[in-house]
Amino acid sequence: MPPADAHPDTGTGPAPQAGTGTEDTLDLQLSEELLALFADGAPRPATPGPPPSPVRPATPPHAPGAGGQLRPGGAGLLDGPAQWRPVTTPAGVFQLVPVRPRRDVAAISRWMNDPAVAAFWELAGPESVTAAHLRSQLDGDGRSVPCLGVLDGTPMSYWEIYRADLDPLARHYPARPHDTGIHLLIGGVSDRGRGVGTTLLRAVADLVLDNRPRCARVVAEPDLRNTPSVSAFLSAGFRFSAEVELPDKRAALMIRDRAHRALL
């Protein structure tokens, strides 16, 4: 699907998919570990270069019963979001809960059909459209995990936590190993326009940094024209790093640095 973006009080959509024809914009030095992770059996380049674009994002191993299998001996590419504990925020107690399609697809599809969300995520339609989007991640190798955001016991937002350094986005900025990206939408109209999006952006970025010790940066790519979205990321402790030209939008690359965390 084309890339999409919106104010965090509605949704910040997924990064562009591979195969768009956009030229690589930079050369990246990647470790042997990262090169070994690329999917589809692509041959390893003879010289360092940008990562090959995966056909689609995929989902990390889940805890049993959470929509996927835990990989033997490890928590997967994203350090096990299923085990991340709830956190207390000014908006209430918040937790990321990995999606279970049978349980969650109806609610997520309803949110995707909200015009304020559909304009950016482009996943409006029957539940099968949302189910296919979720399944493309859940059946993958662990590069992206779809989650419900649960606030005070109520599911109210949808999140994708993904390995930005293994995503097509890495072709468009100087990615570093273990960079972690976030996409979100706020489902309920009553939760929009009152700062909940900013509060949860900060909370989720903190969850990533707390639970992924190898991750030095959390990244996002809201549409540059979406001033409220960029402002919300700034208020959540992200910094504006650069403008990046993606296949279907010009984006503001937003970065939350671990090194600056105590100052924000």
Rank of each mutant, 00 (worst) to 15 (best):
A220P: 00
A118V: 09
P3C: 14
G73K: 11
A82S: 15
A91L: 03
A131I: 00
G193E: 09
A4D: 11
A91P: 04
P43H: 06
T59N: 10
G181H: 01
R256Y: 13
A124L: 10
D9R: 11
R85W: 03
L148E: 04
E32A: 15
V230K: 09
N113A: 11
L185K: 09
G142F: 06
A66N: 07
P146H: 01
V196P: 00
P174I: 13
A58C: 03
N211K: 03
L78F: 01
V93F: 02
A75D: 15
H260C: 07
L207H: 05
E245K: 12
L77E: 02
G237A: 07
D114Q: 14
D257P: 08
R102E: 15
Q17N: 01
M1A: 13
D165C: 01
D248P: 00
Q29E: 07
V189G: 04
R225L: 14
L34I: 12
R217N: 13
A66K: 07
T10I: 13
D5L: 01
A4I: 05
P3Y: 03
T47D: 06
R194S: 02
D152F: 07
L263T: 14
A15F: 03
G11Q: 03
L200F: 04
T180W: 04
G73Q: 11
V204T: 14
A232Q: 10
E243D: 03
P168W: 03
R102P: 05
A252I: 05
L77T: 01
L151Q: 04
N211F: 05
P126G: 15
R261A: 15
P72S: 05
Y173H: 00
P45T: 09
L148Y: 05
P247K: 03
T88E: 15
A131P: 00
D152S: 06
A262D: 15
P45H: 09
F38M: 05
A91W: 01
Q83S: 14
R202E: 10
A132F: 06
G195P: 02
G65F: 05
D139F: 08
T227C: 01
D104R: 09
P126F: 06
L200D: 02
P228L: 07
R135E: 13
E23D: 06
G74Q: 13
